[in-house]
Design a protein around this nucleic acid. Structure first.
Lengths: 245, 245
DNA sequence: CGCCTAATTGAACTTGTTCAAGAACTGTGG
DNA sequence: CCACAGTTCTTGAACAAGTTCAATTAGGCG
């Protein structure tokens, strides 16, 4: 399956050696709270802080000159941001839900990281992971139908929030449809239609717009991977009579 | 203007300090020749070499499970590849035109780079540049019309081959239409139509399919940047009578 | 000059967008 | 606890952009 971008952020396996060391760097940083919709930093911001998201969801986006917005990534609890920036920010970060985070300055960060046993591993593996993730998103968005993208997005959210793709798994889509749309390069209407279709075909069930329950994990996975045969069989044409009856 | 990806490759300003030092690393490497259409390395290849393209054009691509191809980048003369890979190759590299290149092993590379004054700068700035470029391509492909993408592609080729976007500049599109299509997420027919439209509107002129002459650099630039007003004015509707007559 | 491939063009079709209602959810106050 | 208001989400219908399929034309190269 193609994973989505962790652009300019990084999720370390919780409890891993790397994660532990990184967390230590933030140990004495104050915990900040950011309300939904409020900004954390902005494009062209010159600040150089590095953040650790403790709770909530953050969206990273850029604006095109004509006002269109492109969401380049989401940050979930446990994600870092700011590790691979240049002098200027490349995007704006905003809280989607209520967010708790910690921040340290870049210089502080490098001072401290130099004293950990992870220096090399960290400095080199991090940007690579991001690179790969960004390419994966590109692949995904470039050549996939709306239905495939939405399916892959659900699988992505499951992965990032620690859910397995099993029957009965419950996901929470903490972001509104417009954010999903701007992330997938679609409109809210199309995202909505694709989700409805997945529901109508019995692949998922919904409990309100943001609570998703996986009903046919295998099919969701195949859709997410771009298996065209399944796509056509499951997604196209009106609902089969047998199912509708 | 949004620049295109230099995914997993890097162009250093010719003659710059960095470029000079990097070139030195290859000074005693043999020069290899690769014929058009032949592979240089493949996805999942375990080799760890780093390449410098001396002449010609290389395409980097990945295949989706269903057989669709996505070109993630082109390498022009002076570009490096292999600097930010993991153990496994992420894509396949093929010569588009006749290519001359040099290679050194990764271990050799790191040994040598450690003795240059650029170590830090190189290790850190390189992956960042790639990251930004990949994001830029994402932005570009995600939310732009076929005409905008093709215009941006022409600007990109001009930039990478050292041409300025001035009236009368001549570009050579060394890659076939199918490569442009797979890079932009379009079909060859759509690429062809967009190019024809640019010609019909007098923005460019063609001397055979691969020789492009810039006639209205300002308009091309505006299209490439996604200026919608120009797009509509220049690109939509049949050719204005005044021009057609 | 003539062949073979790549590029262009045309027409029907598909997919996603746009515009316009309508329904459902969330949060607040009675 | 329920009703109301504002928002978000869903759904429908017309439309537009790009794809697909099918010829046709143009280039490159022997």
């Amino acid at each position: 399956m193609y994973t989505f971008s962790r652009t300019d952020c990084a999720q370390q396996m919780p409890g891993s050696e790397v994660d532990g060391c990184l967390r230590d760097l933030f140990s004495n940083a104050a915990i900040e709270r950011v309300q939904p919709g409020h900004g954390i930093f902005w494009e062209e911001d010159s600040s150089e802080d590095i953040f650790l998201v403790l709770e909530g969801l953050v969206r990273l986006y850029r604006m095109l000159p004509d006002g269109r917005r492109v969401i380049v990534g989401f940050l979930f609890a446990g994600d870092y941001m700011g590790l691979s920036w240049q002098e200027e920010r490349r995007h704006t970060a905003e809280a989607v839900s209520q967010v708790k985070l910690q921040r340290i300055s870049k210089s502080q960060f490098y001072d401290r990281v130099a004293r950990t046993p992870l220096q090399d591993r960290f400095a080199h593996s991090q940007p690579r992971d991001e690179m790969c993730a960004a390419q994966d998103q590109m692949m995904l968005v470039l050549r996939r139908s709306a239905d495939e993208r939405v399916a892959a997005f659900l699988a992505f959210v499951a992965d990032r929030t620690g859910r397995t793709l099993d029957k009965g798994s419950e996901l929470r889509l903490a972001m509104p449809r417009i954010d999903i749309a701007d992330y997938l390069g679609l409109t809210i209407e199309t995202v909505s239609r694709s989700i409805s279709k997945l529901r109508d075909r019995g692949v998922i069930s919904l409990n309100g717009p943001s609570r998703v329950r996986i009903e046919k994990p295998h099919m969701l996975r195949q859709l997410a991977e771009g298996d065209e045969s399944v796509l056509e069989y499951v997604m196209s044409k009106p609902i089969p009579a047998a199912v509708a009856a």
